[in-house]
């Protein structure tokens, strides 16, 4: 089991069962550095559950999740984050009562203990980093705005920015373009292609146009198992995939 790999993420024989129902069943998934992987599949295929398992929100029944050869299944959520795994939720999950600036500042990876937070001071370095990220996620002009007032698409970007500021080596995004306009989708695709460099990214998405734009490799999940894996073209022409998913 404890094989050394070169992959950033190596998921092996991962199973989680909720009262006997196997939401994820013997899953094997390997993601490389610099790779942008898209996971697709019909509703209830277990896509979000896989992300939940990797980031520690749900505990695996059996199997192993290795991140840079470190086992994640035994760590708690905040330890997994500190190890370098960032996760964006399906619905934008931001702090509506705080400003965009404060949202990013809180996510900056420093002083994450109780006493550290009391003593925390806004340094030039943090300020610069916040502004840098804000520019990257197209929100440089909204830094002082209360985050709750942003448009839906902007909230999605803000949450991506909150992950980017932590500079994770593995970034997991659950439906990052849901509710976005066509133009916002294009901008997001461009953003994802840019940030995938130097790290690994896993994206769950339904929008096939968008998937084509970003995916290096696509994994199709069905009933907790992998149905197909490969390039978008290969997957789209796979009869099994067409039957369970694309044909519907």
């Amino acid at each position: 089991m404890s094989s050394e790999t070169d992959f950033t993420l190596a998921v092996e024989d991962l199973t989680v069962s909720f009262d006997g129902f196997k939401a994820v069943d013997g899953l094997n998934l390997y993601v490389d550095r610099n790779e942008l992987r898209v996971v697709i599949g019909p509703n209830g295929a277990g896509k979000t559950t896989v992300l939940d398992l990797i980031c520690g929100k749900t505990k695996a029944t059996t199997g192993s999740i290795k991140f840079k050869n470190h086992e994640l299944t035994t760590l708690s959520e905040h330890e997994i984050v500190r190890a370098g795994v960032g996760r964006k939720f399906q619905t934008p999950s931001i702090y509506e009562n705080l400003s965009v600036y404060e949202n990013l500042e809180i996510s900056y990876p420093a002083k994450r203990g109780v006493w550290g937070c009391l003593a925390f001071k806004r340094t030039a370095e943090i300020d610069q980093r916040v502004r840098e990220i804000a520019t990257e996620i197209f929100l440089q002009d909204s830094l002082d705005m209360e985050a709750g007032l942003l448009s839906h698409g902007q909230k999605q970007w803000l949450e991506i920015g909150m992950l980017l500021i932590q500079d994770p080596e593995l970034l997991m995004l659950d439906e990052p373009v849901a509710g976005m306009s066509v133009k916002e989708r294009e901008q997001t695709a461009e953003l994802l292609n840019r940030i995938a460099k130097g790290r690994s990214v896993i994206v769950i998405e339904h929008d096939m146009e968008f998937v084509k734009n970003i995916a290096h490799k696509v994994t199709v999940l069905h009933q907790g198992k992998i149905l197909a894996e490969g390039s978008m073209d290969k997957v789209q022409n796979d009869p099994k995939v067409i039957e369970v998913y694309l044909g519907h």
């Binding site: 996760r87 009562n97 990876p109 937070c117 009391l118 932590q166």
Partner: peptide, 25 residues
Amino acid sequence: SSKLGRLMLAMRDKEDRVRFSGYDV
């Protein structure tokens, strides 16, 4: 007024987001 205060507000709104930003809530 410290970062802890902002974090309290953040936790009240979106506890999971705080946890998945690397804080032990």
